[in-house]
Amino acid sequence: MLDNVIIGQYIPGKSLIHKMDPRAKLLCLLLFIVFLFVSRHPAFFILAISLTVLTFIAAGIPFRFYLKGIRIIALIISFTFILHLFVTREGPPLLETPLFTIYTGGVTEGAFIALRLLIIVIMASLITLTTTPVDLTDGLEKLMKPFGKLGVPTHELAFMMAIALRFIPTLLEETAKIIKAQMARGANFTHGSLWRRIKAFVPVLIPLFVQSFKRAEDLAVAMEARGYAGGHGRTKFRILQWKPIDTAAVTLFAVYGAFGVYTRLFI
């Protein structure tokens, strides 16, 4: 049941998107998300969707890999859509019942939000699916470097994130194992009231915490033994290479942003 999580699930490949610098990818994603909320002009929306489709095709990752990730998000998206149906009271009424009224404004607003969320999720998973976690954190670290001057421990933050990502699969495996072990002792995760089911997870969470602390301790000792002493004086095995394609991609997304601002202000 835990195998469905695709966060941090990297699919190796040689596509254009795979080859891009993680910094460029993150910048593009940032531009994409920020400007998506700037304009509601249909032409801009068509551009945003085209960009998503273009990136999707360029990444060459089969659609079924996204399905898993979207399944959970789909719930949130439909929820937001339904919420908007009932809450937004704009435009002419579409459906009137004694209990509630749905306005056309609610439908369009809901659809807008749902569509925005959907393409953001696809765009973001495109990045995690085509970038190894270490590249991603490396990219983040480099992008955040300016904040280092303000006293933000960028190396430590990035390093913590890298380790967390590294251990996600291990911890998922561990959790599945503990669940089975407790089921073998008659723990019941599928029956009874919600409260009972929540309580049933205590025998899973405690061993998981105990094991995680043990792992953290082992890891800390191993890191110390291997001479880790923070980011100072450290060299990097991975170096990021900014290529023309990266400049091109960032430019493309910048143009998209500018177009968003243009449609908002002038059309």
Binding site: E174, I178, A181, A184, A187
Partner: peptide, 26 residues
């Protein structure tokens, strides 16, 4: 009954006695 590899990783109760009693109580 199933004893998994490294079964000590499933211990969770406050006392040993209560941990062993977990199964029968279930």
């Amino acid at each position: 009954g199933m004893v998994f590899q490294y079964p000590e990783h499933q211990l969770f109760e406050e006392t040993i006695l209560r941990d062993v009693a977990f199964g029968p109580e279930n």
